[in-house]
Structures are given as C-alpha cells and as structure tokens.
Design a binder for these strands. Structure first.
Lengths: 189, 189
DNA sequence: AAATTTATTCAACACATCGTTTATTATTTC
DNA sequence: GAAATAATAAACGATGTGTTGAATAAATTT
C-alpha cells in the first residue's frame, strides 16, 4: 500500500509550498500568482519548486487530487447502513470532511478553483450513490442528465454553504441536497 | 441609448482578437495563452491589444459580459404569456440563444471558462423567473439555497447538452430543467 | 474632396519571470 | 559514520511583458 516513506525534507517542502500557495490564492487569482512569489513566501529555492511541480497549475492539481483521495479514504473508514438512507449518510460524511478542511476546501470550491475539480468532488457522491439511483429505473441518457443536474447543483449548494460560514450542520445540508435531488422544490412547499 | 457609433477599425480589431482568442481557447487553457500569441493569430499589433484589453483575462471577461448583455437583449425581444409556464418559455429562449451561438458558448461554459460566468448566465433565468418562484412561499434563506441548487444544476445540464452535440431541442431541455427543479427525480420515475 | 481626428503600426526599450544548469552545502537514511 | 539524497546559491539565455514616440493608414467630419 504505502510506497516507501518519503523523505522528511520533501514532506516539508511540499507542505510549505502548498500553504504559501493557498495563502496567495485567497488574495488573488492563480493567473496573477508567480512561482517566484510562491517560493519567496515559502522560503524555498525556486529550483526546488521545479523538482516537484511544473508550474502553479500543477501544484493546484496536486492539491486537488490529494483532497480527493483524502475524501475517498475518509469515506472508506465508514460503513453505511443499507436502509435506504445511505445517500444522506454519505453526503453527510463528505460535508463533514469539507467542514473540517474548510480553509482549503473553500478556496478550492470557490471561483478561484477550477470547474473540473468541483465536478470530481461530486462524482464521488455519484459513485457512492449510484446503486440507489439505479433502483429508480429511468433510461440511461436521461439518468445522465439527472446526474449532471444533481451533481453540479450540489456543488452550488456546498459553495454557498461555505461562503455563508457553514451555519447549517452537515446533516441538515445533506438532507437538503437529497430532498432537492429527489423531489425538487416541491419538497419544501 | 447608443453611445455614438464605434469606429469600424475598433470593431474589426476587437472582432479578430476575440476570434483568435476563442480559437486558441479551444486548444489550450487560458493560462498557456500569451498575448503575443493572440496578436500573431489575429495579425494585430501587440500595442493595439493593450489599447483595448489589459490582458487575456480581461478579454475573456469582455467576451462574457458581451454574451450576457446579448442574451438579455435577446430575451427583451419577446413577451412571455403569463399562464404559469413562463419559466419554460424563458429557458427555451435562452437555450435557443446558446444553440445559435454554440461555438462561443460551448467554450465559455466548458471548464475553459470561469465559474462566475456560468453562474451569471443562470442568474438571468433566476431574475426572469423570480416572480414565479416566490409564489411558492418558502423562507428566504432556504429559497436562496434552492436557487443555488437549481441554477448551478441547470448550468450542468446545459454543459452536458453542449458537450453531447445538442441532440435535444431547446424546448425539451427547458422542460427537463423545469421538471428537475420543481419535482426532482420523482418527476421522471 | 479635403481636412481633421483617431486608430493602428513599427521598432525599440527596460524589466520580470521563466526554466535549467552546475557546484556546493545540508539533512536524512541506513 | 558513510552513503545517498535533497535543498541551496548563483548564474544563464530565452521569452513575454507593458510602455513609449514617431510614422502611417483609415475613418469621420466639415
């Protein structure tokens, strides 16, 4: 499973580079962030940066994929009861993870992050919930459209939730998303 | 209303710059596109670029706001019957516009474009449909979450629609989005 | 149609960041 | 402690940036 253990120095270098980058990303769009700048902030030699990342966008992507595998690992740690409300439980766990890592997640899911990542996040839900979905038989093409709607819609909700300071609990948000997905507005009137 | 008419040369310059830029945007992410490159493609002097735009991102933003005001103008040209299906009609018109301008729109709404624009597009729908929404009384905070879900979800559907070559009609897509928004999956089982 | 205004071009500029290299130093691992 | 590996420092040519001022070309105005 674990591929050797990585050198402490590498761990440190990557950590400070990530932190400096996220810090800068809070202040300005990625397009205005230079590699020189990231390295100065992190106090890491520029040549060292290049031995780990090809550019800012590569660094961003590595942070994102790190988060994704982190979420997957986090979910793997739980077994969900098969009583028809698995989707809510899974969503709840994901939202809890997002809550616990709000600093990074709020940047990555904001308009500073990129669209493809946002979709990747919610594809995890899709993957986890897919068995429940397919119980409700609809034709495949239609199902894919419903997926797109539900997945991107959920990202929108999470985005708003983060922006407003996460006032609701992860559980409440999960219930809301499931309701919206299953019954739309009619669930709330 | 109209603020003088703009010089023909300006019109031309801006047009070819936009075209060249969109062409490049189909090939690679905006971060890899240089101003030098756009100008060579358009056969426009680099100094001229700077007299109209500050950088690639400014150019992108201007294209986007152009599209938005274009859609608004397009919608203003129609009056919608007030028989409870206004939302469908408005959505249909918007989707027709997207269809007619598929080349630009598919780039702008893809992961090449930026998130804020995608949300702006669907805020037009929100604005247009808001009266119909508020009929169904829900509390304001909840309503905003529902908006977020519906709006971003709809963008997801449109994105998919464009990517798959717009097989459905604008009308069909409008109906699908309205159904998903109002009744969720339950509308399709 | 000529005069005037305005846009674009051209060439040059100093400047910053880029991405790579090479020798040297520091740290970690075994 | 020895060997291996990572980070540093300094230098490099290369490339794109953003701005300039003078010359040219095209539009609009009269």
């Amino acid at each position: 499973m674990k591929s050797k253990k990585t050198d402490r120095r590498i761990k440190y270098t990557k950590m400070v580079l990530r932190e400096s980058f996220v810090k800068l990303l809070k202040q300005k769009p990625i397009s205005k962030i230079t590699i020189k700048e990231i390295c100065e902030e992190a106090d890491i030699n520029r040549a060292t940066f290049y031995s780990h990342y090809s550019d800012q966008y590569d660094l961003l992507r590595q942070i994102e994929t790190g988060l994704l595998s982190d979420i997957n690992e986090y979910l793997a740690g739980y077994s969900f009861s098969d009583n028809g409300s698995e989707s809510i439980q899974i969503l709840q766990k994901i939202f809890e993870y997002v809550q616990e890592n709000a600093e990074v997640c709020s940047v990555m899911l904001s308009d500073k992050g990129d669209i493809s990542f946002q979709q990747e996040v919610m594809k995890i839900v899709q993957k986890q919930c897919i068995s429940e979905w397919t119980k409700k038989s609809v034709n495949k093409e239609l199902a894919e459209y419903i997926y797109s709607f539900a997945v991107t819609g959920s990202v929108g909700v999470v985005h708003k939730w983060l922006k407003e300071g996460m006032k609701q609990s992860a559980r409440e948000l999960a219930e809301m998303v499931i309701n919206l997905t299953n019954r739309g507005i009619s669930a709330f009137v």
